[in-house]
Design a protein around this nucleic acid. Sequence first.
DNA 1: AGAGCTATTTATAAAGT
DNA 2: TACTTTATAAATAGCTC
Lengths: 161, 161
Amino acid sequence: MARNRVKLVYIANDAVRKASHNKRKKGLLKKVNELSTLCGVDACAVIYSSTCNSQPEAWPSTATAHRMLFDFKALPVAEQSNRTMTQESLIKQRIAKAEGLKKVHEENRRMELTQIMFQILNGRVLNTVKKEDLNDLSRLIEQNLNGIYIRLQILNESYVL
Amino acid sequence: MARNRVKLVYIANDAVRKASHNKRKKGLLKKVNELSTLCGVDACAVIYSSTCNSQPEAWPSTATAHRMLFDFKALPVAEQSNRTMTQESLIKQRIAKAEGLKKVHEENRRMELTQIMFQILNGRVLNTVKKEDLNDLSRLIEQNLNGIYIRLQILNESYVL
DNA sequence: AGAGCTATTTATAAAGT
DNA sequence: TACTTTATAAATAGCTC
């Protein structure tokens, strides 16, 4: 934004890219804080540095992150939230049908599955994995994503057959 | 921003707050994508809904997640684990040290964590997820990789403090 | 409640220092 | 290379429907 319109592609020039990175990081964090404050919701953003170590460069605030963690821990157990979600799903679905829309239904399903996913990939992790392993584990999940995908495919196959 | 300058305080009016929430959420996600694309860094944002359940409302982009699959640059290895090692691990480590290599240790650790990861991502999935959801779930894991990662980071943070 | 529409504010690319 | 300035692009508050 400014002086020139900018194409949404990787900035090749190192100096320019870094400058843009700094400016935009600052702007983004400001936005996160604004949204959080104005609307009373928890929000955070993490940006990995292009240079240095790829530890998160920025948080909205430590306090927010911790609050998010607390909320997260306090999530109801699987059965409970699944039931709640299902009820909500049904309502949303009904609305969607009434309005002749498929969008809501799809979004709803995405949310459902997302919830399941996070129950698996966070809640379970918390109880299962030692703290020293979390960092490396997260990295590993990324690196082995293809493997995960394939295994899920295999599981799926086995069900089908 | 606009028409009137807005004070950075919680918006009391429900309708106004929700409208602002939607607009700003959209804007924020766009910014995350822009930063990510322009500067070639991994970035994500998580926003908790003010209404519904406290599941994250927003993600980084699918594109970001996909990029992480490819040009992901390795994180520096976290601090040395002070976890008590198995005897085999210790032996292997000693050998590695004697040879002046860290490779064996790292490989060993990677295998350990991989095993843990698959235990979580298979066993739990198998018991928890309905068969018809597996396909979509696996796709979702890809799409929301950043979300998973940030949460693991948050969990990690909490341990540190 | 949500979908457009400006008038404004805000963010920022490029240039200057 | 980093900070400051400034012209311009983008985001969005308050409307209207």
